Deep mutational scan, measured.
Amino acid sequence: CHSECLGNCSQPDDPTKCVACRNFYLDGRCVETCPPPYYHFQDWRCVNFSFCQDLHHKCKNSRRQGCHQYVIHNNKCIPECPSGYTMNSSNLLCTPCLGPCPKVCHLLEGEKTIDSVTSAQELRGCTVINGSLIINIRGGNNLAAELEANLGLIEEISGYLKIRRSYALVSLSFFRKLRLIRGETLEIGNYSFYALDNQNLRQLWDWSKHNLTITQGKLFFHYNPKLCLSEIHKMEEVSGTKGRQERNDIALKTNGDQASCENELLKFSYIRTSFDKILLRWEPYWPPDFRDLLGFMLFYKEAPYQNVTEFDGQDACGSNSWTVVDIDPPLRSNDPKSQNHPGWLMRGLKPWTQYAIFVKTLVTFSDERRTYGAKSDIIYVQTDATNPSVPLDPISVSNSSSQIILKWKPPSDPNGNITHYLVFWERQAEDSELFELDYCLKGLKLPSRTWSPPFESEDSQKHNQSEYEDSAGECCSCPKTDSQILKELEESSFRKTFEDYLHNVVFVPRKT
Rank of each mutant, 00 (worst) to 15 (best):
R176I: 08
D393H: 08
L212H: 02
S269D: 09
G183C: 00
G110V: 02
L298D: 01
S260Y: 07
G131E: 01
R247L: 11
E302Q: 15
L294T: 06
P304H: 11
L151I: 10
F193G: 01
L406M: 02
T273P: 05
C317F: 14
L265P: 03
T213M: 06
G189A: 11
D249W: 14
L201K: 00
M297R: 03
K409W: 11
R332W: 02
I357C: 04
P330F: 15
Q403A: 05
T353L: 05
N141S: 13
D257I: 06
G313F: 13
L298M: 11
L172T: 12
E187G: 10
W408I: 12
E155H: 08
N340F: 13
L293W: 12
R244N: 08
M346P: 00
V324C: 04
R244P: 11
R176L: 08
R165L: 03
T371N: 08
P410R: 12
T215K: 06
D326V: 03
E246I: 07
R179Q: 10
E155D: 04
I188S: 07
F174P: 08
F193W: 05
E148L: 13
G140F: 06
T371K: 08
S338H: 09
L331F: 12
N190G: 13
D384V: 14
G131F: 02
S366R: 10
K407V: 13
D115P: 07
S116I: 04
V324Q: 13
Q121N: 09
P351V: 12
L147W: 03
W352T: 06
E302P: 09
A149Y: 13
F275N: 10
S269K: 10
L279S: 06
Q245R: 07
R369A: 04
T254D: 10
E310V: 06
K301H: 06
N211G: 12
D312Q: 04
G373N: 08
K218V: 12
I327K: 02
S400G: 08
H233T: 15
L169P: 11
M235P: 00
P342L: 13
P329V: 04
T309M: 11
K350G: 11
A385F: 07
A251E: 15
T361E: 07
T386R: 09
L180I: 14
D377S: 09
E109I: 03
L266H: 01
S402I: 02
Y223D: 08
I114T: 01
I405L: 15
D292V: 03
R138P: 05
I181L: 10
E236I: 07
T386F: 02
P342Q: 09
Q203R: 10
E187C: 15
E368V: 15
I327P: 01
G243K: 05
A385P: 08
D326M: 03
Q216N: 04
S192Y: 01
A145S: 07
H106S: 11
W322A: 02
P284T: 15
K226S: 06
V117M: 13
T254S: 07
G189W: 11
N211E: 08
E187W: 07
L161W: 00
N263R: 10
S260W: 05
W322Y: 14
E148K: 03
W205G: 06
N263C: 11
E231V: 02
Y380Q: 02
Q339F: 15
N399W: 15
S171E: 03
L153I: 09
L279V: 09
I232M: 02
L147K: 00
R370V: 08
E246M: 14
S119L: 08
A303L: 03
L265M: 12
Q258S: 12
M346T: 02
D115V: 05
E368C: 07
F174K: 00
C317W: 04
I129K: 01
Q382S: 07
R369H: 02
N200M: 10
P330T: 14
S338I: 02
T213S: 11
C317I: 07
E237I: 13
L227S: 00
R347M: 08
I135R: 00
N211V: 07
S274E: 09
T185D: 10
I278N: 00
I379R: 10
P329H: 04
D257R: 09
E156T: 05
K253W: 10
D335H: 07
V128G: 07
N141K: 12
P342V: 05
E155N: 10
H341D: 08
G125H: 13
N307D: 15
T118R: 05
P391N: 01
V128S: 10
L279Y: 14
G313A: 04
D315E: 02
F268V: 06
R332L: 05
S230Y: 05
T309R: 12
E302V: 05
E156S: 08
V104L: 07
G240S: 06
G152V: 02
Q382A: 05
P411L: 01
G243E: 14
T241K: 11
S319A: 07
S269P: 02
P351S: 08
K375Y: 06
E122L: 12
D312N: 03
S400E: 10
A259H: 13
F299K: 04
K337S: 09
Y194C: 14
E187Y: 05
F290L: 08
E237G: 04
I404N: 04
K242G: 12
G313M: 15
M235G: 14
L345Q: 13
E246G: 12
A374H: 04
R347A: 03
S274W: 03
K177V: 09
G373V: 11
L229T: 05
F299A: 15
V381C: 15
S398P: 11
L298K: 00
L201M: 01
S173F: 06
I163P: 00
S376P: 01
F193L: 11
G240Y: 06
T273F: 12
S239L: 12
Y305F: 09
K234F: 06
N307A: 10
Y372R: 03
Q258M: 07
E246V: 07
F311G: 03
N399D: 15
G131P: 00
F221Y: 13
S239I: 15
A385W: 04
I129W: 04
V128W: 15
F268L: 06
K267G: 07
P336K: 05
L204A: 11
G183R: 01
E264W: 02
K162C: 15
T113R: 03
I154T: 05
D292L: 07
L180C: 10
S166P: 02
Q382I: 11
R281N: 11
I278R: 00
Q339R: 07
T254H: 14
N263F: 12
E236V: 06
D292P: 13
V324L: 07
S376T: 04
R370Y: 11
P388I: 01
S230P: 12
G313Q: 11
L196W: 12
N200L: 09
Q216E: 03
F174D: 00
L196S: 10
G243T: 14
L252V: 12
L147M: 14
N141F: 06
K177L: 06
Y372L: 06
H222Q: 09
P329R: 12
C317S: 03
R347T: 13
Q121R: 07
P342C: 15
I135E: 00
E231Q: 15
A251Y: 10
E187A: 03
V390I: 06
S166Y: 02
L180Q: 12
H341V: 08
L151G: 03
L212Y: 01
D197R: 03
S389C: 13
S274Y: 14
Q199T: 10
G152W: 04
R291L: 05
W207C: 02
I129M: 07
H222V: 03
